[in-house]
Simulated scan of single mutants.
Amino acid sequence: MKGDRVEIVVDFGDGSRSYEVAATRAGRRVDVRIARGVVEVSEVTRTGTPVRTARFMANRTLALVEHPANGGRAIDGE
């Protein structure tokens, strides 16, 4: 959903760097996968086609923060 975003903080030895991947258009979402020592964050379309992807080594990733577009509130208004 447009507005979804994920912040990634990565250790680079001399400090840390922060990256952000966001769903930039309506109908896109941000998908996070962690497998085989790699963290992969992708912006994907409704059909599942990746638009852009960021990959980081899992042992260097300090933080992975997901920010949903609805601000963490329930969709049905509860």
Rank of each mutant, 00 (worst) to 15 (best):
V51G: 06
G72L: 01
Y19N: 13
V30W: 03
F12N: 12
T45L: 11
S16C: 12
I34M: 05
R73K: 11
P50C: 09
E66C: 13
V6H: 04
E66V: 07
D11Y: 12
V21P: 03
R36T: 05
T45E: 07
G37E: 05
F56W: 08
N59Y: 10
R36N: 14
T45G: 15
G37S: 04
A23K: 04
R73I: 11
G13N: 03
G77C: 07
V39A: 01
A23T: 06
S16A: 09
R29D: 10
G37H: 09
P50S: 13
P50W: 03
E43N: 04
R25N: 09
E66I: 12
V65T: 05
V51D: 05
V51Q: 12
R17M: 10
N70V: 04
V44T: 06
V6Y: 03
M57G: 12
V41K: 05
R28P: 10
R5C: 02
P68F: 03
A58S: 15
G27V: 02
E43T: 07
V9H: 02
T47F: 10
G71E: 06
R60D: 13
G15Q: 04
S42N: 03
P50R: 09
G71P: 05
I8S: 02
M57I: 08
L62V: 10
T53F: 06
D4W: 09
N70W: 05
V38W: 12
D76W: 12
R28N: 15
V6T: 14
G77N: 09
G72S: 13
E40S: 02
V21A: 01
V44R: 14
P68G: 02
M1N: 15
N70T: 02
A23R: 04
R60P: 12
E20P: 00
R29L: 11
V30P: 02
P68L: 01
G3S: 07
G27M: 05
S16G: 14
G77E: 04
R36F: 09
V10H: 03
R25D: 13
R33G: 13
T45H: 09
G3T: 06
D14M: 15
E43I: 11
A22T: 10
V32E: 02
L64G: 03
L64E: 01
F12L: 15
I34G: 03
M57K: 13
